[in-house]
């Protein structure tokens, strides 16, 4: 499928999801669905760096929270429409990704991962000490009851925005996979030295990946203050975001955008279900169990069962 028909298909599917959620006439579906959608964006964003170029980022909570705190700061300065604020959050986190990439991409493997984790800790310390956005006491954001658009319920509005972001993330991730950029990412993941010898500007490509990945995480975090209405550093920078987000592509498969999508839908939905039916503390246990289980039964993720990912197999793709 070419780019535009694929985009239209995504929009149709998204519209279907929204209508189905409305049809249940249960407000909680939107509330829980928002979290699932947010994790789809996070998982796809993580996969741009982690799955395509092979650099494992543990600092997800940092990018995510910086996006959320951008919203808090913007709200205090000049209240703007939420989609604009999301773009701002994406820009700030994207820049953070670029900076982090520039400082840490000399490191490989586990050393890079530790550096990203350290970045999240530094960002959290910074926020704890920045009183303008609430500091350690946290910040309240007032969530309006309805939006100016069609008088829509605000949670539905957040759900819709996140749904739009999911479509954007899927379309971008798929476009990367089919482009020269995606080929370069794959070359870096497989062998950086050989990639460089084959003319791939590895540093520049890695910076593009960290910036794009960070930007999507920031955009996913930007609506958070309106969703939770109270944001404090320990919850915004919670390690659970990182653990969940990394588990999702690993469960679904890292070779294609479908992997993180499937993994996020599966894991996040299950978590939401368990939170309601059993207890919220079982969440992380589920992540652990599913990770262990899937690494045994599906080392290439769920999409690996269907042969997606072993060689990109794009015969006849004349360009």
């Amino acid at each position: 499928m070419r780019g535009f028909p694929f985009f239209l298909t995504c929009l149709l599917v998204a519209a279907g999801v929204f209508l189905a959620a409305r049809w249940t006439e249960n407000g909680y579906v939107f509330f829980a669905g928002y979290v699932v959608l947010q994790y789809i964006v996070l998982a796809i964003a993580w996969n741009i760096l982690g799955g395509y170029t092979g650099y494992v980022n543990f600092g997800i909570a940092g990018f995510f929270a910086i996006g959320a705190y951008t919203t808090v700061a913007v709200e205090k300065l000049v209240p703007l429409p939420l989609p604009v604020v999301m773009l701002a959050g994406g820009a700030v986190s994207g820049l953070l990704g670029l900076g982090m990439g520039y400082l840490t991409l000399r490191l490989r493997g586990v050393f890079f991962s530790i550096a990203t984790l350290a970045m999240a800790v530094v960002a959290q310390t910074f926020m704890v000490n920045w009183d303008f956005v609430g500091g350690s006491a946290g910040a309240f954001t007032i969530r309006p009851m309805t939006t100016p658009y069609f008088g829509m319920d605000y949670i539905r509005y957040l759900f819709l925005l996140m749904l739009g972001l999911v479509v954007l993330a899927v379309v971008v991730a798929r476009a990367i996979e089919r482009s020269r950029l995606g080929d370069g990412f794959a070359a870096i993941r497989d062998d950086e030295l050989a990639a460089e010898a084959s003319g791939v500007p590895t540093l520049r490509l890695k910076l593009i990946a960290t910036a794009m990945s960070g930007a999507f995480m920031g955009m996913a975090g930007a609506p958070l203050p309106f969703y939770v209405t109270y944001l404090d550093p320990p919850s915004a920078f919670s390690l659970a975001y990182a653990v969940n987000t990394i588990a999702m592509p690993l469960i679904g498969g890292t070779a294609s955008w479908m992997g993180p999508l499937i993994g996020a839908v599966l894991l996040a939905s299950l978590q939401q279900l368990v939170t309601v039916t059993i207890s919220s503390a079982v969440n992380l246990l589920i992540v652990g169990l599913m990770l262990v289980g899937f690494i045994i039964i599906a080392p290439r993720g769920i999409i690996g069962w269907f042969g997606i990912g072993a060689g990109k197999r794009r015969r006849g793709r004349g360009r």
Partner: peptide
């Protein structure tokens, strides 16, 4: 040899 092992 240093092939890109995930690519054909």
């Amino acid at each position: 040899p240093r092939p890109f092992h995930s690519l054909t």
